[in-house]
Amino acid sequence: MTTTAPDLAERFRTDGFVFPVNALTHAEAEQALAECQTYLRAVSAVGGALARYAAFPKIHLVASWADRIVHHPAILDAVASLLGPDLLVWSTNLFIRPAYSGSSLAWHQDAVYLGLDGYQQHAARVWVALTDTTIANGTMRYARGSHLHGALPHRFGGSGLEDIMRGEEIAVDIDEAAAVDVLLDAGQCSVHHLAMAHASGPNQTDTGRFNFAIDYITPRVSPTAGEDSALLVRGTDTGAFLPERRPESDFDQAALNDFYSAVTRRQKRINQTVQNRNAGKGPDTPRDPS
């Protein structure tokens, strides 16, 4: 059954997530997927910073398909029902699980890597399905109510390469029997709290899984340290983030300049956040792999 606006806030407060939320139409999802694949080919051909940051954290600054999704009225209405009328996009991310990929991601929380004050009440991640998401293709799993415990300690699950590639995992037991699989049709989305514990499995199908994630915040969120930027998408902004601009077209020069500045600024700050959190241990780059 599709979740409607009146019950979003209560379910988000108690469970830490809501889905499915109807967002893009099937035709819009098909178009976005095609444009996303074209975008990935283009940035791969260009190389450099565009290719390095193709999947995160500022896709919306250079790609019109991403800009269109972050401004989608159905998504903004759903997020506004949770966070209020003033909304900014802090980050956009692509999460792709290729066909027959054996990769999986351990139970983790996004919040521990992001360096945001006020995220507990004033931020949410929207996970938009550009393809259907199923158990077979490695969709996300949520640990219901885990956001209520705040930021949990994390550790690597082992010393082998496979353990490290799976990322840091929560250093407390997760009740697998109570985990919820995020099953979405293309065009639908889920919304989760940034302290929601989640994981994902391997893709055992012959087609790739494509998801586009958007981190929405309100002006009541601020960076823990250093400068950062965000794009106002609804209401007014009186907050601590430098303003971003929408692209006039794909990869236009002004957009590229803004993109390079924004990702450099963000990467520097997030690297420092992760280093501070790990006290000199673990990776020095953000792990944000839903």
Rank of each mutant, 00 (worst) to 15 (best):
R125L: 07
V128A: 11
T134G: 04
R125S: 14
R155N: 05
D132G: 10
T133F: 03
H147W: 06
L130E: 02
S146H: 07
G138F: 09
A136T: 08
A129V: 07
R125F: 00
I135S: 12
A136W: 07
G150F: 07
R125N: 14
A151T: 13
Y142W: 14
S146C: 05
L130I: 01
T134D: 15
T139G: 12
G150W: 10
V128M: 15
L152H: 10
V128E: 06
N137I: 02
T133Y: 03
A143C: 04
T133M: 05
G138W: 04
M140Q: 08
T133N: 05
H147Y: 07
R144N: 10
S146V: 05
L130C: 05
M140N: 08
R155C: 04
G150E: 02
A129C: 13
G145M: 11
R155A: 14
A143F: 15
G145W: 12
G150K: 08
H147K: 12
I135G: 05
D132N: 15
A129Y: 04
I135W: 12
H147L: 06
A124N: 07
V128I: 15
A124R: 03
A143I: 01
A129L: 14
G138C: 09
L148N: 11
A143H: 13
V126C: 09
H149R: 15
Y142N: 03
L148H: 12
W127Q: 03
V126G: 01
D132H: 14
A129F: 03
R125Y: 01
A151K: 15
A124D: 02
Y142K: 00
A143P: 01
V128L: 15
H149Y: 13
A136I: 03
M140F: 10
G150L: 08
I135F: 13
A129H: 04
H149M: 14
H154I: 01
A136D: 15
L148P: 00
R125H: 02
H149V: 04
L148R: 14
V126S: 05
T139A: 12
W127P: 12
H154S: 05
M140H: 06
R144E: 11
A129P: 13
P153A: 05
H149D: 15
H149I: 02
W127Y: 07
A143D: 06
V126R: 00
